[in-house]
Structures are given as C-alpha cells and as structure tokens.
Design a protein around this nucleic acid. Structure first.
Length: 584
DNA sequence: GGGAGATGTCATATA
DNA sequence: TTTATATGACATCTC
C-alpha cells in the first residue's frame, strides 16, 4: 500500500517503484488495486505537507431398582406396582379402628403418608420452575406424535375405556405451560365422571409401549386394593351402595396434577425432539446414561477425532509437499509461522507458533494441502486455495505439476522464473528494492536483532519503509491466522458446551419422570388407605358412611376427622386457591 | 457469473 | 512513545 507513497517523497526510487508497478500489473493487478493506496498516499502527502515533509513512514500498523419395581406392577397402567404395598394395606387394615377407637391411632398410621403429600408440592413447584425454563425454547409441537399419544385406535382398550372426556381441558397440543398452570387439574375431583378416566388415559400416553392389556385393569386394581383410586366405590364394590354421583377426593387434585405434569412432560419430550417411543422409553432408561441419542453427528466437533488423526497424518505431508505449498503458508503447527508465501519452509517456520497453540488439529482445513485429507470434512473438500496473489492460476498449475518436457528444457531461466512466480508481493518488492536480507528475517527477528540487522546496512528511506511494511504485514498475517484459529476454537468449545447442556437437560428430564412416578405411587398409596379407612367406618347404627355425604379430613396436626362433604368441599376449594395465588 | 470460504491487508484498540 | 498482538472489516482469490 504505502510503498507507492514514497513515489513523491523519494524521487530517487522512482525507477524501482516503476518496476514494482509493472510487476504488479504483470501479475494481474490493475492500477485500481491501488486506489486505496492512492487515497492513503494523498493523506500521507497532506500529512507530510503539514508536518513539514520530514517524517518517515511508520505505518501503523451426566435406580435400576426403581426401574425394576416399576416395571413389575404399575397400578395405573399395569406396568408396575410396589410389591410391598399389599402388606402395608394388610397392616393398616388390621389397624383400622372401629368407630369407638380414638383417632390418635389413626393418626399414627396415616399421618406419615398424609404428610408426605406436602413435599411433592414443593418438588413439583421446583420442577415446574425448571420446566418453565425449558419451555422458553419455543419449539414446535409434533402433532403427529401427539396423535399417536392421545388418539389411540378405537380397538385399543386403553382408548376405549379410558379415553379423555370430550370436554377435558387436555388437548392434543396440551403444552407444558397449560399443565403447569394447574388450573384445570386443581378443579378436578378424582371421583368425577369426567375426570376419573383422565389419569389412566394419561398413563396410556406415558407408556405407549406397554401392551394394551388394560382390560384387566379392574381385576388388577381389585387385587391390589387400588381400584378406588380411579373408580368410584360403586364401581369397584369396595365402598357402600349409597355412593352418590360425585365423590370428591381430597387427593384428586394432587394426583391429577401429577398426571397432568406427566402429560406436560410427554409434551415436552415431544417438543424436545424425542419421538413417542423415545419418550416412553425414558422411564425405562434411567440406568442408561445414553438413553437419548443426541444427534451430534453433524456437529463439527464430532469430527474432531477424525480430524485430529487426519491432521496428524497431514503434518508430514505438509512438509513433503512444501514445493506445492505455495498456496499456503501453514506450518506443521497449524500455520502460525510465517513462510512469506515462499516455496520453502525452514525449521524455524515449521515450529513457527506464535504463542497460541489451540486444538488446531481438529481442523482439516488447517492442513489442507493434501486434498484427500478433506474427506473427513466433506464440506471443505473444495478448499485448497491458492493465495499467492502474485501468481496466475496457470502458472500455479504448472508449478504444481511441471510437465516433463518443461523440466527437460528446465533451463535455469525457467526455474528462476518459476521461483520468481512463487514469491510473494513483498518478496518481489524486497528484491526490487534490493533488500539485503530475507523477508523471514525481517518478519521473525526480535526487535533488537532486527534493529541490529538494519544498522548493519546502509539503507535508504524507501528501503527502510518497505522493510518495516514487510515486517508489519508479515506479523499481522500471522496474527490474523492465529486470530481466526482462535475464533474457530471458540466456536468448537461452544458447540461442546451446547452438547453438554443438552445431555444435562436430557438427564434432568429422565430424573423428573422418575420423581413423578414415585410421587404418583405415593399418592396411590395414600388414596388406597383413604378408601380403606373410609370403607371401614360405621355410624352408630353400624352402617357405612356415604362418601357423598362425608369425607375424611386431614388436620394439620396429623389427625383425621370425619366431616360433612360440604365442609370438605369448601376447605378443598380454599386450599386450591392458595397454590394458585402463590403462583401468581 | 456469482456465492462461499480462505487468506491477506489495513485500521484500530490494547497490552 | 514504540512495539507487538488482537480483531473487525474489507478486498481478493480460488473453487
């Protein structure tokens, strides 16, 4: 750039500069190439005029057991159920007091389970917080997958018996947000005809891989005393005959919320790119860290290993192909040394790192001199540029593969011409200006030695300027290469971070499924106990209480009271509002 | 001929 | 202040 500006300042060098111009023009560079230079030159001239024309140019330059248990007997889906449960029921049944027994005994038996319903709320709250974060990713819901999940074939027992009621607030596109709000689930009663089917239906969505043997659900529940969970007592026969049409259950809301949460989880799973099978398998893969196949095959970083190997293998070829490396000045270290665009690479250049040595080996592009090595990066196959701007492509072709005839004629003249064409602009300039040392020295020598070198020779102002320019450009070229490599390395690290985060997210998702399942089982136990206790209560005439008129009320101190249903309903509504208000 | 990617260069900021 | 280095922006080149 700036060397032309010396045109006006150093008339003695006009001839040399003319030569340089001619060279550039010969090399295909038109005068317009120097337009900017002209502007710069004008500025320089102005500056010089202002400064009195005296200044020289210094151009600035990450529980198998739980899984096993669950897979054995689920009360809801036929998938799993805790083996210890019947034993618990038996013990509790024995302990169920007659109406004359004091409530204290009941408390001692029931309170541990009943109080256990507190923490799940907090747990769910935490999960909902987490899910709300995840939800921030506005991902499109896979409708087709939803259809598979929610629209089972008519012949399917699950769908036949437990399909969603038409007016259920759950639709195929139920979103995490909708479920998380819990507005609808909170209003449900477990014994409500509209809702009693809901949990089963939800479960069917959760476990699409479980054989549809749900026709045996009733027998399954009877045998496990769990039928009261999902069916009104008049249906499973464990309660009295006077049951009304609606038997609200104090645990219905909790259970439903958990179910809805699972729906939202499934939804999330779909949104997150899991297919229905993958989502259902989530529950079966707790032990498998790689339960999810994160498709990283397209990630550049996944190419690292192959790239690394190819890079290491290319290191030798880079030096062996030095003669054809005119297009690249990369050294073995990945191109941090400066080779001044020349055809030779000396040791100094081969080692020529400039402090920063990232994992450049990943990048085939960093050692692309052998195009065959680009096979590991198909999208880079085309890379193989020639950036010796001073060479015509034809010249380069002949340079890479000199025909035998040419070699035969191989006169020194042509060889010199060949070498001449291999040289960079700066080398041409240096030669034209008769700089008495190599560009490598100019660029790579420490300042002190560089200055020493300059002092050894009597150099004109134009020569000194050119030398400084060469040094500046050379160093900046290496800096630019390092900068670009650092950028690529940063991108790779970020890609790795993204993959790690995706793995963490998948793990958290699996953990949530596990927690929700535990919660569901706990609620089932409590519900079963409720039914057991209520079914055995007798009034003064020895008749069972009607679930439509009475309900068991859990007191804050752990005691259990038998209160009229209307009172229970009022209190239930009051409790439902609290969490809603809390969410607001 | 034009787009994409690689590279060189300049200007500028910072150490 | 000088020098080296880092980086955005642009120009140019090759495919």
């Amino acid at each position: 750039m700036g060397w032309e500006s010396r045109l006006t300042a150093a008339s003695a060098d006009i001839d040399l500069i003319d030569i340089l111009w001619r060279q550039d023009i010969d090399l295909g560079a038109g005068r317009e190439v120097f337009d900017y230079s002209h502007r710069q030159k004008e500025q320089d001239v102005d500056k010089e005029l202002r400064d009195g024309g005296e200044q020289a140019d210094t151009w600035a330059g990450e529980g198998a057991e739980a899984l096993a248990r669950d897979l054995l007997v689920d009360g809801e889906t036929g998938e799993s159920f805790p083996a210890q449960f019947p034993a618990n029921v038996a013990s509790i049944t024995e302990a169920v007091p007659s109406e004359s027994e004091p409530p204290a005994l009941q408390n001692s038996l029931l309170s541990p389970l009943l109080t256990g319903t507190e923490s799940p709320f907090d747990l769910e709250q935490q999960w909902q917080d987490l899910m709300s974060i995840m939800e921030m990713q506005a991902m499109e819901v896979n409708t087709s997958a939803s259809e598979i999940l929610y629209n089972a074939p008519p012949g399917d027992p699950l769908s036949t018996n437990y399909s969603l009621a038409p007016n259920t607030p759950i639709n195929q596109n139920v979103s995490l947000h909708q479920a998380s709000l819990g507005g609808c689930s909170q209003d449900f009663s477990l014994f409500s005809p509209e809702v009693e089917n809901l949990p089963v239906a939800n479960s069917s969505t959760l476990l699409p891989l479980v054989p549809s043997n749900s026709t045996s659900l009733n027998s399954t529940f009877s045998s496990t005393n769990l039928a009261g969970l999902f069916f009104p007592p008049q249906l499973n026969g464990t309660a009295n005959d006077t049951a009304g049409p609606e038997l609200p259950d104090p645990l219905g809301g909790l259970l439903d919320e958990a179910m809805l949460d699972e729906i939202s989880l499934m939804d999330l799973a779909i949104e997150e790119g899991f297919n229905p099978v993958q989502a259902s398998q989530l529950e079966e893969e707790f032990d498998s860290d790689s339960g999810l196949s994160l498709d990283s095959s397209h990630s550049p970083s996944s190419l690292s290993s192959s790239e690394g190997s190819s890079s290491s293998s290319s290191s030798s070829s880079s030096s062996s192909s030095a003669s054809s490396s005119a297009s690249s000045s990369f050294s073995e270290e990945g191109a941090v040394g400066y080779s001044s665009d020349s055809e030779t690479l000396d040791l100094e250049e081969a080692e020529g790192a400039v402090g920063y040595q990232p994992e450049y080996s990943k990048f085939c592009r960093m050692s692309y001199q052998d195009p065959s090595q680009l096979s590991c990066l198909p999208y880079l196959e085309h890379v193989g540029h020639n950036h010796t701007y001073n060479m015509a492509p034809s010249a380069l072709d002949s340079a890479d593969l000199p025909p035998p005839s040419t070699l035969k004629k191989g006169s020194k003249e042509k060889q010199a011409d060949f070498l001449d064409k291999q040289m960079s602009r700066d080398e041409h300039r240096a030669r034209a200006m008769k700089i008495p040392f190599t560009n490598d020295k100019i660029i790579n020598l420490p300042v002190e030695e560089f200055n020493e070198l300059l002092s050894k020779y009597q150099l004109s102002e134009a020569q000194l300027s050119l030398i400084r320019d060469i040094r500046r450009r050379g160093k900046n070229k290496m800096a630019a290469q390092n900068c670009r490599k650092r950028k690529l390395d940063t991108i790779l690290n970020l890609e790795r971070d993204v993959e790690d985060l995706q793995r963490d997210k998948a793990r958290l998702l699996r953990e949530k499924v596990e927690f929700l399942r535990s919660l569901r089982q706990m609620k089932q136990k409590v519900q079963s106990l409720y039914q057991e206790v209520f079914g055995r209560l007798r009034d003064e005439n020895g008749r069972p209480y009607s679930p439509s008129q009475y309900a068991l009320q859990y007191a804050g101190d752990g005691s259990v009271l038998l209160i009229p249903r209307t009172m229970a309903d009022q209190q239930a509504r009051r409790q439902e509002r609290k969490p809603k208000d809390r969410r607001k």
